[in-house]
Design a protein around this nucleic acid. Sequence first.
RNA 1: GCCGAGAUAGCUCAGUUGGUAGAGCAUGCGACUGAAAAUCGCAGGGUCGACAGUUCAAGUCUGUCUCUCGGCA
Length: 310
Amino acid sequence: MQLPPDKLPLIVILGPTAVGKTKLSLQLAKKYQGEIISADSRLFYRGMDIGTAKPSKEELQIVPHHLIDVTDPDDTWSLGRYKDACVRLIDEIHRRGNIPFLVGGTGQYIRAITDGWVVPKLSPDERLREVLNEWGEEIGAEALYERLKVIDPEAAEKILPGNMRRMVRALEVIFKTGQKFSSLRKKEPVPYNVLQIGLDRPRHIIDERIDARVDEMMQNGFLEEVAHLLAHYSKDVPSMTAIGYSQLAEYLEGSLDLDEAVEEIKKVTRKFYRRQMTWFKKGDERIDWFDLSEVSISDIDLCIQQFLSE
RNA sequence: GCCGAGAUAGCUCAGUUGGUAGAGCAUGCGACUGAAAAUCGCAGGGUCGACAGUUCAAGUCUGUCUCUCGGCA
């Protein structure tokens, strides 16, 4: 297979939850001798399978997959870890002469790769975060925001005043590195020739697919999966904030009926779809959009052929 | 049939001593650089059940009617 001479190709398949990314990307990756790198913040964790709609064991064997089941639920992965690992993997795949397929729905992770984000190299300091959170609670989010505005006005501009979590991260970086958070927020050139394939479907179809998928998850033992996880991990570990897991944990604690929990899962998944679409815009020229309810795989295939022959 | 409670945003409900309405959720839109399936923000949307009366002014007071829920028959 002939690869573009200057920059090596990276095929990104992005799209919202329940659209059908897994199935399609498997077919395409198989055809083009590809390897799939997951761009999904909840597929890292072993044992979180049903509720994350993780590809099945069989599917994982069709083509090589990366960044799935790489750690346990109490070992939190994050943007920085993701970016480092992903960049390394893309390089390795290119060396093997294969094509990397970045597939997923976590907009932040995808943009870190496609837009060359330079993520501040500072791993989280849980104790400092705790201190900062307490401080914020004490003086109020607004007051904390005023402090941030004084220390790093540029960073403050990018953060909404009520958003404690993002303020805490910014202050954490500032206090530990002695540098402004905003000054560490850089971009670098992207060393790949990137094709972005966006998958979507009409909204009412997505809603139907979400409902059906949640029901299916419940039938496939989602509740048992959550119960099993809770026997080993606290429900407060970040991975357990995944959609579905937190609601079923509430049911198991007795603070929610099962019916209510299932409805809630459907509801927040629909909300999640909308939030995902703020990363993947229809007006984004870099994305070739396909409506999976109308288009066949050969249309997408054609798009990839063109890209690879350029 | 009688007694009681209620009828306000798509839904669940607030609404002080009368001054033409708010919240949460839903919906739409958005932000996002090591928790991101997280976290945070903005917006639209109501002839306040109907009709009459009192009043400068009624979601709010009075009367009648319609409907809903509960209790008694």
